[in-house]
Simulated assay, not measured.
Amino acid sequence: MSRVLLVEDEELNRVLVRAILARATDDVIRGVELLEAGSLERARDTLAHTDVDVVLLDVNLPDGNGLSLAADLSTRPDRPQVIALTASVLPHERAAAMSAGCDAFLDKPYGAQDLLKVLASHLPS
């Protein structure tokens, strides 16, 4: 079973991701264990104690920029895949996310199929 950490401060967005994953028809995605963190601090704590395969990472969080977490994760030998989730979609913002160590970028608001497609392509086989 794969583990996905959703780092998102907005409860409504966490509910949306939960619902999308619960309704997925792909057995691999439906079988994902979803962990949630509403802040960078909570995400760092979770990652210190739990191995995850993918991090769905909101870039703008109340306690800092999610890209700092992506950069920290990029140095780990057991590094999870990182998918940036953000409404900041200017080319230089996308480039900053990728250079910080993100493996993919998903624009907010995103549709269910967009999330499922990018997640499926980054989960272990």
Score class of each variant (00 low, 15 high):
residue 1 M to Q: 01
residue 9 D to Y: 05
residue 21 L to Y: 09
residue 19 A to F: 09
residue 43 A to H: 04
residue 34 L to I: 07
residue 20 I to R: 11
residue 46 T to E: 14
residue 47 L to I: 10
residue 33 E to L: 12
residue 38 G to A: 15
residue 17 V to W: 01
residue 8 E to M: 11
residue 39 S to I: 00
residue 49 H to D: 13
residue 33 E to K: 02
residue 49 H to R: 14
residue 6 L to Y: 04
residue 40 L to C: 12
residue 34 L to N: 07
residue 48 A to T: 09
residue 20 I to C: 08
residue 28 V to A: 09
residue 19 A to H: 13
residue 11 E to A: 15
residue 41 E to A: 11
residue 48 A to H: 12
residue 45 D to Y: 08
residue 15 V to N: 13
residue 29 I to P: 08
residue 8 E to P: 10
residue 24 A to I: 00
residue 16 L to Q: 12
residue 25 T to H: 09
residue 43 A to D: 08
residue 9 D to G: 11
residue 12 L to Q: 10
residue 17 V to D: 06
residue 27 D to A: 11
residue 22 A to H: 11
residue 17 V to N: 06
residue 42 R to Q: 14
residue 21 L to T: 11
residue 41 E to T: 15
residue 28 V to P: 00
residue 43 A to V: 10
residue 43 A to M: 10
residue 30 R to A: 12
residue 25 T to S: 12
residue 48 A to Y: 05
residue 5 L to R: 10
residue 38 G to D: 14
residue 4 V to G: 03
residue 28 V to T: 13
residue 13 N to W: 05
residue 1 M to G: 01
residue 10 E to M: 13
residue 5 L to V: 10
residue 20 I to H: 06
residue 7 V to S: 04
residue 11 E to R: 14
residue 3 R to L: 04
residue 14 R to P: 09
residue 31 G to Q: 09
residue 31 G to C: 03
residue 42 R to S: 12
residue 4 V to N: 08
residue 25 T to D: 09
residue 21 L to G: 09
residue 38 G to W: 09
residue 44 R to W: 06
residue 41 E to P: 04
residue 2 S to W: 04
residue 40 L to R: 11
residue 6 L to W: 00
residue 32 V to F: 05
residue 8 E to S: 04
residue 20 I to P: 04
residue 45 D to A: 15
residue 6 L to K: 01
residue 33 E to V: 14
residue 12 L to W: 11
residue 42 R to F: 00
residue 4 V to H: 02
residue 35 L to H: 04
residue 39 S to E: 05
residue 3 R to S: 10
